[in-house]
Design a protein around this nucleic acid. Structure first.
Length: 599
RNA sequence: GGGGUGGUAGCUCAGUUGGUUAGAGCGCCUGCCUGUCACGUAGGAGGUCGCGGGUUCGAGUCCCGUCCAUCCCGCCA
């Protein structure tokens, strides 16, 4: 049993050769006398002919789709009127002289033709993932993922990086994402946590002198799932010593450029634009702006400081509050349901309501326009470029909240406009963007203390370091996020490598008790006192990178065996129950859910 | 934890104000067919309408609960 060719290989030049092909029955066309089989393997399709004079035609007539067969036969050039131009091998066919059925396929649970299969319920396809993946379109996604990984590894290798594997059995780090706990049998009552990131280990590798580390790191987070979030996912995780932010930008731009080129043949221009967090929030109302379309936020705080409209006047004259607006061009004819939905989105972001002006038939239709002076209307019209068919949305709130409200409304409005065919974004448009100068700390109203905006190892911008003691909220971190078309591909930072600064951040700014710092991060502080080089790193969400390359919105599509939104693998049926012995060994008792308190 | 959408034949779907025996296309099965490539053609089988309860003379259809999938919010240092 030896295959001579893949199913995409044969051409007229191969005529006269005796070949052996193996693969799956793609389709069968039984004409009573002659029978045709399209034989498919991972590379392509070849037509095989079974003639009545062959001993195997009767077997061929009984073949079922997706059975695995081996055929041997003679490569023959097709007559001109029977050439199939849709097939790479369409000028030839193999006239079969032998046929072996290696595995007959049962009745299929869903059609395998790409266009039909794509519409089949995802849960059924996930249960039969081995079949769904067999479709050329989906095998192509696995190949694409492979190409992207290969390009990234090649670039990192060229740049002097060493791939090092770090443990995924780590310990709990409670201030991060919820973790998967793993009970320790040898240390009863104690638990590992599956690593949510190799963060601390990779910093130790820098202290160890590795200088340039990377890893295609499997990470785990026990949070609710989304189209772009799985409980286990892969990060291109890397760390470098003796660098600054500019080195990191150049490196990542090189990696992504190479991945785009080698995976999908697209040249992306570098360097990428950069935008401060402040500017991103001001203009787009989000820290990962989609800059493929405008609809930018405009400020009218000064304009409404003396307005007759009390809601706007009060916001405009309150310190820290703003009055801002966006113009959703061409969306004035939205339905009542769509408007209500936008209102709900605004309310979820903290708005009390969603003030708007519809401009239709040369008229401004709005519950609030009667309060506006001519001067205010003129300023709005001019700055927002208001024309017939537009609808303007307002937010009057503290700066960050107003930004978030309009940022959400902007994205939803764009989605509506795209659905109505009034906003066209080319599928091959890639707007990469660095978002930089994030605040290092955020004040947590519930806990009445500062929390790290990203993680506590991020170094402050040098000129802001004195503010750590006086006004931590004003300190900008040396953090950077890489954003593509409104999707956060990854983020990282230059780290603190000084024991004293790290200790101050932990204890004085974040107010983590000294004993907790010692037990959780003691080894890091210890390491930093033994020759820690200045260093920084980043982690790219590899699944998201591949999804963007593939033009897919769900990372389930580009994972071989993804989990559903409730965290289950429908094919393997995980998770499952543990045996009594396993639980005994781990000293774990499963208790019934406590009845919900009735209120 | 919250909001939206969906669940009817193996698959994709239709199913009217609640009313006789729940339909279509594809797939499957059985014939016929020697140049098809979405082969064609004739016939056939196939349904606990996700599950449980309720209203009703009568429920795929109305009500309540629940499960599953999915999108989003919260969450994701």
């Amino acid at each position: 049993m030896k295959r001579t060719h893949h199913c995409n290989a044969l051409r007229p030049a191969d005529a006269g050769k005796n070949v052996t092909l193996m693969g799956w029955v793609d389709t069968k066309r039984d004409l009573g006398g002659v029978t045709f089989i399209d034989l498919r393997d991972r590379e392509g399709v070849t037509q095989v002919v079974f003639r009545p004079d062959s001993k195997v035609q009767e077997t061929a007539q009984r073949l079922k789709s997706e059975s695995v067969i081996e055929i041997a036969g003679l490569v023959t050039v097709r007559s001109p009127d029977t050439v199939n131009p849709k097939l790479a091998t369409g000028q030839v066919e193999v006239v079969a002289t032998s046929l072996v059925v290696h595995n007959a396929c049962a009745d299929l649970p869903f059609p395998m033709e790409d266009d039909k299969a794509d519409k089949v319920n995802e849960d059924l396809r996930l249960e039969y993932r081995f079949l769904d993946l067999r479709r050329p379109r989906n095998l192509g996604l696995l190949k694409l993922r492979h190409k992207a990984a290969r390009a990234i590894r090649a670039e990192l290798d060229d740049q002097g990086f060493i791939e090092v594997e770090t443990p995924t059995l780590f310990k709990s780090t409670p201030e991060g994402a919820r973790e998967f706990l793993v009970p320790s049998r040898l240390q009863p009552g104690q638990f590992y946590a599956l690593s949510q990131s190799p963060q601390q280990y990779k910093q130790m590798l820098m202290v160890a002198g590795v200088e340039r580390y990377y890893q295609m790191a499997r990470c785990y987070r026990d949070e609710d799932l989304r189209a772009d979030r799985q409980p286990e996912f892969t990060q291109v995780d890397l760390e470098m010593s003796f660098i600054d932010r500019e080195d990191m930008y150049a490196l990542i731009e090189g990696i992504l450029k190479r991945a785009w080129k080698e995976a999908i043949g697209v040249d992306i221009p570098t360097p990428f634009p950069r935008m401060s967090y402040r500017e991103a929030m001001d203009r787009f109302g989000i820290d990962k702006p989609d800059t493929r379309f405008g609809m930018e936020i405009q400020d009218f705080t000064a304009l409404f400081a003396g307005s007759a409209f009390k809601v706007f006047r009060e916001a405009a004259t309150t310190s820290g509050s703003v009055v801002r607006a966006i113009n959703a061009k061409g969306l004035a004819d939205l339905t009542q349901g769509e408007l209500t939905n936008l209102e709900n989105i605004a309310k979820a972001a903290g708005a009390r309501g969603l003030a708007y002006i519809k401009c239709e038939g040369g008229e401004w239709k709005s519950p609030i326009v009667k309060f506006f002076s001519e001067e205010e209307k003129a300023a709005l019209r001019q700055k927002l470029d208001i024309a017939d068919g537009d609808i303007v949305f307002f937010a009057a709130a503290p700066w960050e909240q107003a930004s978030t409200i309009l940022g959400r409304v902007r994205l939803e409005s764009a989605a509506l406009l795209r659905a109505k065919g009034r906003l066209a974004i080319p599928a091959d448009r890639y707007d990469f963007l660095w978002v930089i100068e994030f605040p290092l700390m955020l004040w947590d109203e519930e806990e009445k203390r500062y929390l790290s905006a990203h993680h506590p190892f991020t170094a402050p911008v040098p000129e802001d370091e004195p503010l750590l003691a006086t006004d931590p909220a004003k300190v900008r971190g040396q953090h950077y996020d890489i954003v593509l078309n409104g999707v956060e591909l990854g983020g990282g930072s230059i780290r603190i490598h000084d024991t004293a600064v790290q200790k101050r951040v932990f204890e004085d700014v974040l107010k983590i008790p000294a004993d907790v710092v010692a037990s959780r991060f003691g080894y890091m502080l210890k390491a930093f006192s033994y020759g820690a080089p200045p260093h920084g790193g980043i982690a790219l969400g590899f699944d998201r990178v591949v999804a963007m390359l593939a033009g897919r919105s769900s990372i389930r599509d580009i994972l071989a065996f993804p989990k559903t939104q409730s965290g289950q693998d429908l094919m393997a049926q995980s998770p499952g129950v543990a045996t009594a012995k396993q639980l005994r060994d781990l000293r774990i008792r499963v208790v019934d859910e406590e009845p919900k308190a009735k209120g």
